[in-house]
């Protein structure tokens, strides 16, 4: 999985499917007010698109969407977006997560709750998506000397046998 797949079928199909899956994930998050769905399901779909690209094209694929280093910070931002929405309502004198307490001029209270729920769903989706991608990347980043029995070693073209490598010099 750390290298590009050799099959042209897998390469083309995953490239075509990943964007459709991610588009559907965004739809599931935004349309969660009217149909089954929401942040958790849509976030899982968004992560599935990224992970599919990384399984087909190797670890370096789709880094522009969720880079390996930015996954955990982005998950923090998602969780804080959720918690921060609750704190905003607290600042306006309501209960925690009581979106209707925020006075927005020109908008009635149910509509404020509507957008509060939408903001919270975005936070959930961002957190779930980046956490799933982060777990996938973390499992790929196990050092090569620890996964010799698990499957193909990291550098298959390396002439030095894996058993003779000194882990301290790497």
């Amino acid at each position: 999985m750390t290298h590009k797949s050799v099959s042209i079928i897998i390469l083309v199909a995953s490239r075509a499917l990943a964007r459709v899956i991610q588009l559907f994930g965004i739809y599931v998050i935004i349309h969660g007010h009217y149909s089954p769905g929401g942040g958790f399901q849509g976030g899982a779909l968004l992560a599935a698109g990224v992970i599919l690209m990384r399984m087909a094209y190797g670890r370096e694929a789709s880094q522009s969407e969720v880079s390996t280093g930015a996954a955990i910070p982005l998950a923090s931002i998602g969780a804080l977006l959720f918690a921060g929405t609750g704190l905003i309502t607290l600042a306006f004198g309501g209960h925690y997560m009581d979106y209707g307490a925020v006075p927005v001029p020109g908008i009635e209270e149910p509509i404020v709750r509507y957008y509060g729920i939408l903001l919270v769903e975005f936070g959930i989706g961002l957190a779930v998506m980046t956490v799933l991608v982060a777990i996938f990347d973390d499992m790929l980043s196990v050092p090569p000397e620890e996964r010799v029995e698990g499957g193909a070693p990291d550098e298959s073209s390396d002439p030095v046998p894996v058993e003779r490598r000194n882990p301290m010099t790497r």
């Binding site: 969660g32 007010h33 009217y34 089954p36 929401g38 709750r113 509507y114 509060g116 729920i117 769903e121």
Partner: peptide, 13 residues
């Protein structure tokens, strides 16, 4: 909450 999906309202509100 002006949201037709009551599951979403229960879950997020």
């Amino acid at each position: 909450a002006a949201t037709p999906n009551m599951v979403t309202v229960v879950l997020a509100d």
